[in-house]
Write a protein that binds this DNA or RNA. Structure first.
Length: 274
DNA sequence: AGCCTTTGACCAGCG
DNA sequence: TCGCTGGTCAAAGGC
């Protein structure tokens, strides 16, 4: 991190990272609550639109700060809900970009495979790994050492049409019946089969998105997970130890009562008053 | 019939 | 060079 003077001690920096991460997660959950409230109400509420805008900007700032603090990131580009990071880390080629704080995949267990040259990848931490609007076909499943959960490998259904997009789903936690997944995407979709009507606008969205229900039936760790009170929680973050950061958020989501009054929530949690 | 997942085998990178 | 491990292939069976 040559471009950023390090005046704080490591412990102070850790506290700062923790606090910023906590703030990020809180705001992320509030953003979701706002979206939920808007959908429930069925009509646009200016106050909520403003709040959403503010939250989005705050999320981007916090995410940016987190990425910088956690690694030797030299450039952070925010695309929609994705954070694309470019790093000076020797583990990366100069053209490689990832949306991951976990800048060196080999650090997982001291081993690993070198990423193929020319392939870009990014990581998305989410509780809903199978809903991204694309159709995927599972081609592998592997028990990973050091992990309690198997890793699933997917490629785009339209690979035969030349689409090289792939994704790798790894469940990371299973706290409070709210599993979190780390989804690593490799290569962008070149197919034109993206579902442009994601679940937020579909009448009866499947919590598992584009993966067929038969697939879910064969995934024990997913069968246990039957979301009911919420439809979507996308925890897009700088990744890495975002799992830790997400613990608070997960607890909040699972224990939270979705019928809570939104204004009370805002007031209690961030001092936001209407 | 066609597309899917499962799963064991194989390949290749890394220490 | 070898063993370990992650990533991919492909046959078999299910829906």
């Amino acid at each position: 991190m040559s471009s950023m003077p390090m005046r704080n001690s490591n412990s102070e920096q850790e506290v700062a990272i923790k606090e910023v991460g906590r703030g990020y997660d809180i705001i992320k959950q509030l953003q979701y609550l706002l979206q939920l409230k808007s959908r429930k109400g069925g009509e646009a509420i200016p106050m909520h639109e403003l709040a959403e805008t503010l939250f989005r900007e705050a999320l981007q700032s916090l995410n940016h700060a987190l990425c910088i603090m956690r690694s030797g990131v030299t450039k952070v580009e925010i695309k929609s809900d994705m954070v694309v990071i470019e790093s000076d880390s020797p583990a990366h080629s100069s053209h490689e970009s990832v949306t991951s704080y976990n800048s060196d995949q080999r650090s997982e267990n001291g081993r690993g495979k070198r990423r193929r040259v020319g392939e870009s990848s990014w990581i998305n931490n989410t509780s809903m790994p199978y809903d991204d609007g694309y159709q995927w076909r599972k081609y592998g499943d592997k028990k990973i050492s050091g992990s309690d959960f198997p890793r699933s490998y997917f490629r785009c259904t339209y690979k035969e049409q030349g689409c090289q997009a792939k994704k790798l789903v790894q469940q990371t936690t299973n706290k409070l019946d709210m599993p979190l997944f780390q989804v690593t995407y490799t290569n962008k979709h070149t197919c034109n089969f993206h579902n442009t009507t994601p679940l937020s606008s579909s009448p009866q969205p499947s919590p598992f998105g584009s993966i067929q229900q038969s697939s879910i039936n064969h995934m024990p760790h997913l069968q246990e997970y039957q979301p009911s009170g919420y439809q979507l929680l996308n925890q897009v973050s700088c990744s890495g130890d975002a799992n830790n950061l997400s613990n608070f958020a997960s607890t909040f989501i699972v224990e939270g009562n979705w019928e809570w009054d939104l204004d009370s929530l805002l007031k209690d949690l961030v001092g936001f008053t209407s």
